[in-house]
């Protein structure tokens, strides 16, 4: 019994743990997987050498300053193309991703970043939703557990003892085509078997 109960929480716990771990992992290691395979030939502008995939990753993290809610990767205006070009030049000069982002933030302000840095006052942009989500999920699970009561068995026994119910029970049984409800449906809840 104990085993059965413990294991019954297992998948729930697993799902929650899975969600929490991946959530934290993604936040802790941003932008994994958003770059592309680096083995491809680059056909960008002929300035120095840089990683085109890295450049495209940066493109997606910079907002086009003159367009509503588009990154420079998406925007179809000249400024966005020029900024893309600048990203590649800076990379060719040996800038790191963070330095490129800083370069643009210095010039256009924090608004140019598609997602604010996870430092300073902007940490709230990240922490608060994660906190709320974890808190909400936790509260939901606690409430769900509190709803759990071994009521089914009690109710069954109680209703079984009710003589007045008998004709209706028969009506249902006949409807369900049980000739003998005692054998067909099991008159008493069978004991729960041990897990396995």
């Amino acid at each position: 019994m104990l085993n059965a109960r413990r294991s019954s929480i297992f998948p729930v716990a697993l799902a929650t743990a899975f969600a929490a771990v991946t959530l934290l992992a993604l936040v802790a290691f941003p932008s994994t997987g958003f770059a592309q395979d680096g083995s491809l030939p680059s056909s960008g502008p002929p300035t120095g050498s840089y990683n085109e995939d890295e450049a495209q990753g940066i493109d997606r993290m910079l907002m086009c300053p003159v367009c509503p809610a588009e990154s420079i990767d998406q925007a179809q205006v000249e400024l966005a193309r020029q900024m893309q070009q600048k990203v590649r030049e800076l990379l060719a000069e040996g800038y790191t991703r963070q330095e490129v982002l800083d370069y643009f933030e210095e010039r256009y302000g924090p608004k140019v970043l598609a997602a604010p840095p996870k430092t300073g006052a902007h940490i709230w942009a990240w922490v608060l939703p994660i906190g709320s989500v974890l808190l909400g999920t936790g509260a939901g699970l606690v409430i769900l557990r509190s709803m759990k009561r071994p009521s089914a068995a009690r109710q069954t026994v109680q209703e079984q003892g009710d003589e007045d119910l008998q004709p209706y029970l028969e009506e249902v049984d006949r409807g369900l085509a049980f000739d003998d409800p005692a054998t067909a449906a099991g008159s008493s809840p069978p004991p729960e078997e041990p897990n396995g």
Binding site: Q155, T156, E159, L165, V172, A185, G186, P189, E193
Partner: peptide, 22 residues
């Protein structure tokens, strides 16, 4: 669903249906 759980639940539904009819 294993056999015993099935029977147990069927029994519960049966009783619930009966009391609902009543």
């Amino acid at each position: 669903i294993p056999e015993d759980t099935f029977r147990e639940h069927l029994q519960t539904y049966r009783l619930e249906a009966a009391s609902l009819l009543r």
